[in-house]
Design a binder for these strands. Structure first.
Lengths: 159, 159
DNA sequence: CGGTAATATATCGTGCGCGATATAAGTAAC
DNA sequence: GTTACTTATATCGCGCACGATATATTACCG
């Protein structure tokens, strides 16, 4: 498990402001892929992909959200969500209904089957949490740093 | 910018070991997408996608790596890398040559044009680094935590 | 040496993620 | 109310990410 990019950061020559600090992007990228690989075998039995799982999580927390609202939460737009949610609808996990108060919107709601999947999903979350090897407090701090990073990156580019 | 999932972590009910601690996966996911969006407009002029950029970074650090070696570094396999590298070859940024000492391997090497792109890429890295809003030391610590997380996730599942 | 297992890369199908574009519904100005 | 503008969702094409599979080369073992 030798890794050029990773090892580079331990190179004394790259300490203090250097281009290699920007390789944070790579570690985020690799960590995200690693999560996906852990989730896949756990989510397969539920018939969910990882992004579908995130949409379901959003709905388990607040049912009946519009497509745009879900997209705001997850940072995705309709070109990604529409087909994804249609697949969830095809699996009878959600319904898609036009908002009668604003016909532009589509409200996504859990079916009984979709709602029932929550308990199994909670078990998946617990399993993954164990396998991060992080203390609850450490994970909380890491999440806070990542949210801050995301916020900074969403600002218009400076320079 | 109200976010159900994010806000959930501040709910007192979810402190200490709870399923929501596992939402770390979501913050990693969202941070990765945010990086991709920052990089896109900067990489478009170079004719590179973000994953292609990561492959080039790997080659700028160590030229002439095999496909598998690059995959080890980035956490990708040949089904992703082969077509990606062929596109880099099509753009005349790399060459692909069978290793004469082990004909199973394909060695990927920078062309002069590919090597020349490094200086522009360094500028992109510097620009993104500025926009993470993180001190060099903070970024270093965050990277270390993410690498540790990745390592933990790559272990066989426990439980 | 021959046969089998392991390794390295390539191919294919599916589902994201996103820019560009289209369409329809709501909003504002006059 | 008609025109112009904005908003919400949908469609399309491209490039990744990955499981499953194929093929070729090397390594191992009798």
């Amino acid at each position: 498990m030798c890794n050029y990019i990773v090892d580079m950061s331990d190179d004394p020559a790259s300490s203090s402001p250097s281009p290699f600090d920007a390789m944070l992007c790579f570690d985020v990228y690799a960590a995200n892929l690693a999560f996906g690989r852990v989730y896949k075998p756990l989510l397969d039995p539920l018939g969910l992909t990882y992004p579908q799982f995130l949409v379901m999580l959003s709905l388990w927390m607040a049912d009946g959200q519009s497509v745009g609202r879900i997209g705001e939460t997850l940072g995705l737009d309709s070109s990604t969500l529409t087909p994804l949610i249609k697949r969830l609808e095809g699996a009878s996990l959600v319904t898609r209904l036009r908002d009668t108060r604003d016909e532009r919107r589509v409200l996504v709601s859990l079916t009984p089957q979709g709602a029932a999947l929550k308990s199994e999903a909670d078990r998946v979350l617990t399993c993954v949490t164990r396998n991060t090897g992080l203390e609850s407090e450490t994970a909380r701090q890491l999440r806070e740093q990542l949210r801050q990073l995301r916020r900074a990156l969403q600002q218009p580019l400076k320079g």
